[in-house]
């Protein structure tokens, strides 16, 4: 394939990975966290179930770390390529364009911290479970940071679904794009409620 289409392929890969597998993983992760609202035992049993998945480390690398790393690195390049101009063009989609870039950066910082605090600590021998999260989130500042991180992640995913549909030529006309806006707003609200409830359950 010609070298000149490299950017095209990278960009397509970026949008694809954002949804499959990263987006699906985020939804699964938030749903699993939501078990914490049923009490520590319910949450710990979900953690146990996940930890007993065969070949977990390969699944983690193949479906989470590597796709996420590519999405993040290419996303940072894209974020700083744009020159925001919402002051002059305060249209809804232009705001979404800006927020997608801002939430992308916030999400990256949040996820990096979150992975360090949980997955890397687990690799170093810490035990993952309700206690670990309770210890982190009982600090109000950390709870605030986590809620911001979750909301930012969920926004980035919801609005990302909207742009995915455009980038792959699924929603072409203004009517379908408007319907997709309503749909993705709905996804944002639902996932936010699930995510924030889980965070509060640990506090």
């Amino acid at each position: 394939m010609a070298a000149s289409t490299k950017q095209f392929l990278y960009h397509k890969l970026h949008t694809l990975l954002g949804l499959f597998p990263i987006g699906l993983f985020v939804i699964f992760h938030l749903a699993a966290n939501h078990q914490a609202t049923q009490g520590p035992e319910a949450y710990n049993s979900v953690v146990e179930m996940i930890e007993s998945t065969p070949f977990l480390i390969f699944l983690e690398f193949g479906f989470i770390y590597i796709p996420l790393l590519f999405h993040a690195v290419y996303g940072l390049y894209l974020a700083f390529l744009g020159k925001q101009n919402v002051n002059n063009y305060g249209y809804f989609r232009n705001w979404m364009f800006l927020l997608q870039r801002i939430t992308g950066v916030i999400t990256l910082i949040f996820v990096a911290w979150h992975v360090y605090e949980t997955r890397i600590q687990a690799a170093l021998g810490a035990e993952v479970g309700y206690e670990m999260m309770h210890e982190i989130l009982s600090n109000p500042a950390m709870l605030g940071f986590y809620i911001l991180g979750v909301l930012s992640t969920v926004f980035h995913l919801s609005n990302g679904i909207w742009s995915f549909l455009v980038h792959w030529g699924i929603t072409v006309g203004p009517r379908s794009q408007r319907l997709a806006t309503y749909l993705t707003v709905g996804i944002f609200v639902v996932l936010s409620v699930i995510g924030v409830r889980a965070a509060l359950a640990f506090a």
Binding site: G82, Y89, N94, M96, F97
Partner: peptide, 8 residues
């Protein structure tokens, strides 16, 4: 692919 969907 350089389009960022700002729709301005």
């Amino acid at each position: 692919t350089n389009c960022g969907n700002s729709q301005n």
